[in-house]
Structures are given as C-alpha cells and as structure tokens.
C-alpha cells in the first residue's frame, strides 16, 4: 500500500477510535452531573458544578458488599463455564461417538431460550430445592445460560486443532485427562481468553436473575445496586452514572489483562504446535 493509503487508513481508524472512546468520557461526565443537567444539557458539556458527591452517595449506598458479590459470582461462574464448556466441546469435537451431533444440537437449542420465558419456571425450581436467596443459584444459572454460547465460540476453534497432536499424544500413552488438561487446554488459551472476556461482561452486567432470585441485600450485586437509585417517581441518574463508572473500572482492567492474553497465548501455542 502506498503512503497516502496508509494516512487515509489511519485517519479512519483514528476516527473510529475517538468514537469508541467518547462513550466513556460521556459516562464520566454524566456521573458528575445532576438530573437537570443530564437531561436538559449537552451530553458532552462539562458539569456546571462537579457533583463528586454522587460517588459519595453511591459509596454510602453500601456498594462494597455488592462489589464483592459481583466479583466472586462472576469469577466462579467464569471458571465453571470455561471448564465445563471446554470439556464438553472437547468430547463433541475430538472424541468419537454416535450421539455427538445430537448432543451438540441440544446445547444449541439452549442458546435460543428467551430468559423471560425461563425465569418463572427457574424461580419455582430453586424455590423447591431451597436455593432462593442463595448466591449459588445465581452462579449455576450464569454457568448454565452461558454454556451454549461459550461452546459455540469454542467449537470453531476446536475443529481447527490439528489431529496429529492428539494422535501423537495417545500413541505415546498419554491419558485423555492429560491430553485435555495439559495439551489441548493450553493450546486454546487465545479463545479461552476470549470467552473469559465475554462471560465476564455477561455475568458482570446481568441483573434479571439476581433481582428475581435474590432478596437479601447481602447477596445482591452491583447491577442491582443501580436499582437503588431508581424511585417510584424520581430517579437519581447522577448516582447511577457513578455506579456505572465504579462498576466499569474492574472489568476494564480485567479486559485489558485478558485482551493481552489473546495474543500471548497464540505465540506460546504456536511454538508448541
């Protein structure tokens, strides 16, 4: 490509980048305004008075507990989903059995259920086994509902893994567990990082299940914390903005970390492969 082409390309890329950054800037300004300015003023205008007290309001609303719950529920659900999805995808794509495509089909159907159809039956089930108002109901629900999409993403990658590797491993007398945990799993680091990011965003931002299954304040998560500022007739949008900024920071950091892994993993697996 010639020089002019490159300049044009970078101009476009830069422009898109600015567009993608603006929402964060907007959200930050939003979090420092009051309702009137938020709705009547220009979105990117600086606040007339910087309402840092929005953050104080949020802090006093007991965000610490919510924060802790969000973190551990998200992390545990991600680990479970990634592990179970990898295992099932491994068995479906690499092992030989008659029912594999049928089982894959079942997982795909799981992708299609609208959550509002599921929520009332699920509540009933959890009620019967005494799991209502128990954070584990959230963890297993997140795991189950993210399994299908996670497997779909893994699928494309598992199909492309070279067969020679496992053949060689099996001939060397390697057990299946060893093959999966020591060879296959590390090879899929890039896609694992990808699904960790996706699962993280889903779990972190989810609130329908939490709202329905959890009633005690001590088990609620950050997204439910937002509901604290929505009133019958009045909503404190500035505080919601502050909550959104606070809840954005940890996944932003985690995202950058795993985003690097997407690339790192590749170079390491390329060496092995």
């Amino acid at each position: 490509m010639n020089r002019l082409g490159y300049i044009f390309l970078y101009l476009c890329l830069g422009l898109v980048a600015v567009f993608q950054i603006l929402p964060i800037v907007w959200l930050f300004l939003f979090s420092l305004k009051g309702n009137r300015e938020i709705f009547a003023g220009s979105p990117f205008a600086l606040p007339q008075e910087w309402k840092w007290e929005n953050y104080l309001t949020v802090w006093e609303g007991g965000i610490g507990t919510y924060f802790f719950n969000s973190v551990w529920i998200t992390v545990v659900a991600i680990i479970l989903t990634s592990l179970l999805a990898s295992m099932a995808t491994f068995a479906i794509t690499r092992m030989q059995w008659k029912l594999s495509s049928l089982v894959l089909g079942l997982f795909m159907v799981g992708l299609m259920i609208p959550i509002h159809s599921a929520i009332i039956p699920l509540f009933n089930m959890f009620l019967n086994v005494n799991l209502i108002d128990n954070p584990w109901s959230i963890v297993i629900t997140y795991t189950a509902y993210n399994l299908p999409i996670t497997m779909m993403i893994l699928l494309g990658f598992y199909y492309t893994l070279p067969r020679e590797i496992e053949e060689a491993a099996i001939i060397d007398g390697c057990s299946i567990h060893r093959l999966f945990f020591r060879i296959i799993l590390p090879m899929t680091t890039p896609v694992l990082s990808t699904i960790v990011i996706i699962n993280m965003i889903y779990n972190w931002n989810e609130f329908v299940f939490v709202n329905t299954f959890i009633s005690s304040d001590q088990y609620k998560t950050l997204t439910v914390g937002i509901q604290n500022f929505i009133g019958q007739y009045m909503t404190d949008w500035g505080a919601i903005g502050a909550t959104l900024i606070i809840s954005l920071l940890p996944i932003l950091l985690a995202f950058i970390f795993f985003s690097n892994k997407v690339v790192e993993g590749i170079s390491s697996s390329a060496v092995k492969g």
């Binding site: 179970l84 999805a85 295992m87 089982v103 997982f107 599921a118 297993i140 629900t141 399994l147």
Partner: peptide, 11 residues
C-alpha cells in the same frame, strides 16, 4: 457435567 446443568436449568 455441562449437559446435566443445561438440561436442568434450561430444558
């Protein structure tokens, strides 16, 4: 493990 979870919580 995955199938049971999906079976119970989705199906």
């Amino acid at each position: 493990p995955a199938l049971i979870l999906v079976g119970i919580l989705i199906f």
